[in-house]
């Protein structure tokens, strides 16, 4: 492996922390600054860091699913959260809220989770594709 020991050791420590932090950001977005978008970016970057340290194959294996699937699931969750209020005769994207043990839960949180997954998926599609230098995307052409 041409990757440095320092980077690999650091990555092993940092990646779980970053993932945890991304979830923290996601949930914090409920009432304060933060949210699915920024959380998803941090999570995406953590997988990217893992890919830089150990290679994209290891990073893909750690993800356990394809980024495309993440995108699809994320979009799906967002759509569901947007459509839920319609069942109750409300308008598209209207916020629905329930009180549970003193915690307010609502469809905007669900929407944010969808955004979170979508952003991870999109970031990783781009990063993996560039990192692997996909020959279909960038066929090697001699430039004279």
């Amino acid at each position: 492996m041409r990757h440095s020991v320092i980077l690999r050791t650091a990555a092993r420590l940092l990646v779980p922390l970053m993932l945890l932090f991304s979830v923290f950001l996601l949930l914090r977005g409920h009432n304060e600054t933060g949210g699915g978008f920024i959380g998803g970016l941090v999570a995406g970057i953590s997988f990217a860091l893992y890919a830089i340290a150990y290679g994209t194959a290891a990073s893909r294996a750690a993800l356990r699913t394809t980024p495309q699937q993440l995108m699809a699931v994320g979009l799906g969750i967002a759509v569901v959260s947007a459509l839920l209020p319609l069942l109750g005769g409300g308008a598209l994207l209207e916020g629905l809220w329930v009180q549970w043990q003193g915690i307010k839960l609502g469809s905007p949180v669900l929407f944010d989770v969808g955004v979170y997954l979508l952003v991870i998926g999109v970031t990783l599609v781009v990063i993996y594709e560039l990192e692997e230098h996909n020959p279909r995307l960038f066929p090697d052409v001699s430039l004279g």
Partner: peptide, 24 residues
């Protein structure tokens, strides 16, 4: 409801886009 009917032309392709991604 009219609410739902108006946005159906957007919702249907959106759901289809998600589904086609899932069945990539």
């Amino acid at each position: 409801s009219a609410h739902l009917l108006i946005i159906l032309p957007l919702v249907i392709p959106f759901v289809a886009a998600v589904a086609t991604l899932l069945f990539a």
